[in-house]
Write a protein that binds this DNA or RNA. Sequence first.
RNA 1: GCGCCCGUAGCUCAGCAGGAUAGAGCAUCAGAUUCCUAAUCUGGGGGCCAUGGGUUCGAAUCCCGUCGGGCGCACCA
Length: 584
Amino acid sequence: MTHTPANLFATYTGHIAAALDRLEAAGSLPGGLNRANITCEPPRDPAHGDLSTNAAMVLAKPAGTNPRALAEMLAVELRAAPGVEAAEVAGPGFINLRLVDAAWRDELRAIAEAGDAYGRSDMGAGTTVNVEYVSTNPTGPIHMGHCRGAVVGDALASLLEAAGHTVIREYYVNDAGGQVDVLARSVHLRYREALGEDVGEVPEGLYPGDYLVPVGQALAQLYGDRFVSLPEAEWLGDFRKASVAAMMKIIRHDLSLLGIKHDVFASEAELQAAGKPDAAEAWLRAHDLVYDGVLEAPKGKTPDEDWEPVILPLFRSTKFGDDQDRPIRKSDGSWTYFGADLAYHFQKAQSADALVDIWGADHAGTVKRIRAAVAALTGADGHTAKPFEIKIVQMVQLMRNGEPVKMSKRSGNFVTLADVVEEVGKNVVRFTMLTRKPEAQMDFDFAKVVEASKDNPVFYVQYCHARVRSTLRKGAVEGIMPDVSAIDRLETDELALVKLAAQFPRVVESAAAAREPHRVAFFLYDLAAGFHAHWNVGNDSPGKRFIVTQDRQLTAARLFLVSQIGQVIRNGLAILGVEAAEEL
RNA sequence: GCGCCCGUAGCUCAGCAGGAUAGAGCAUCAGAUUCCUAAUCUGGGGGCCAUGGGUUCGAAUCCCGUCGGGCGCACCA
């Protein structure tokens, strides 16, 4: 296991706990109080100090005292904690701590010692999390509607790794359903076309996309004309397999453009061939969680006229909070999507300590049933159910000239991920998707994004890193290298940058716990802003520039600071999967 | 009709598991480059945090209602 550096905020949370222990031992505070809501955070206004705790306000009521009085007692204890220069009670009962400069110099050293590992945490304790994301149907290239889930899932996976989890990145390939028949027929058409037949317009109901042309050509090369006039049953199976393989190749390529690589591609067809859904059904029937029953009529606004009650095997998802029980097989005996999906999630649950699924909002309606299934399958017989979270990523509304674009693979009308990445680059796409919380809808106007890509905040952060590198290059030209032994020369305004950077480990932990990678992106933006601001101080005051050739020792100290700011930017960008630029 | 998500500056969005005077970018106005990259910085204007109640020391944040927007409500995937 890699060495995880100490986290300053965790350290002081510990000091606060110790101070409370001493108050308890002295009889000034009742024992057994719930400390779960105590925080140790930087105050919003830096003038208030370096760290702030709400401990007195949280504990005052259960302790039967008032917040200010408790805060005063606690402040006395905290003044004795290492590195604390001042502890003041403020407002309704906050305790603001100011640390000695030496504490921040220590943190600066800690960044350098940890290097690429700075910000990593052992919070996850090595537990395995399976993150399933993308999982688009293998019927064509990835389009922009799927891009957001792909980026968010990938960044979340990296974030969880940084927070000390072992992560499995998984893609569920829906290669068993009826849409693959449609795909295979569409490819068969292209196959006949490749053999010289004039197929005319692609008929309604088949995929019209050009990306199927080469697939048909390849099959023509492989098979010659032997499947041209044979009945569908003779070729459908082979064509399904070949088409899915071709589509997955395209999809993997599209994902690679974004730097996304999955560890596991789980095939629905293989899952079914291995009898997993049958086993799940048998087990669920044995536990009276599947029964043969009548499906309720659809509840939509327009009730279907040709609705007929049928008896199907139903999973008792209502026992777990769903609105109605859900069929796991169709009337022809084949598996519903849900029937196979439940077996898939059960299988996946064996591979990890916790599961996270990233889904598009269009599938939000099925969250309850699959949650119910995982709870049923993993939580029975006295086991506690496997932790399972579904993160819903809201739709990206594609716009063109201010008009919404209706996208579908059937119509062939869609903006592909590859087009966008080619136009604005992987870094812009990724950062754009990561600078908003995933559960809010967003519009994505292709033209606007291309036009505004120069204003993208990703460049602001990358420029910060580029400035760091150019400063170090310039220093090297002057023959001055970063030197840790000189950092006593750093002054308060320079240590302020360390204070900013020192929040990174805390940001990683809280972002991982909340499964919100976008917090890392916003932190990097703030850190870059601090750096840019300090840089410009040097415009008015040449003595504040990082490189002051008359004072080589001071310059060495400042270059050390600069290089560590670059380190933190780099570590953060690595989590987001965005490249740190050497120059812009 | 039901379920889930969202509503914060003119626009795009943050707001760190309830904290102190609600913040950025874009746009707008006024400034800063003989200087390590101005793809930057400094300052101004701009807010009933959709709305009405509730919970408590304290609410943009939690609960309930209303309004507005999105997604879904199949034996599809």
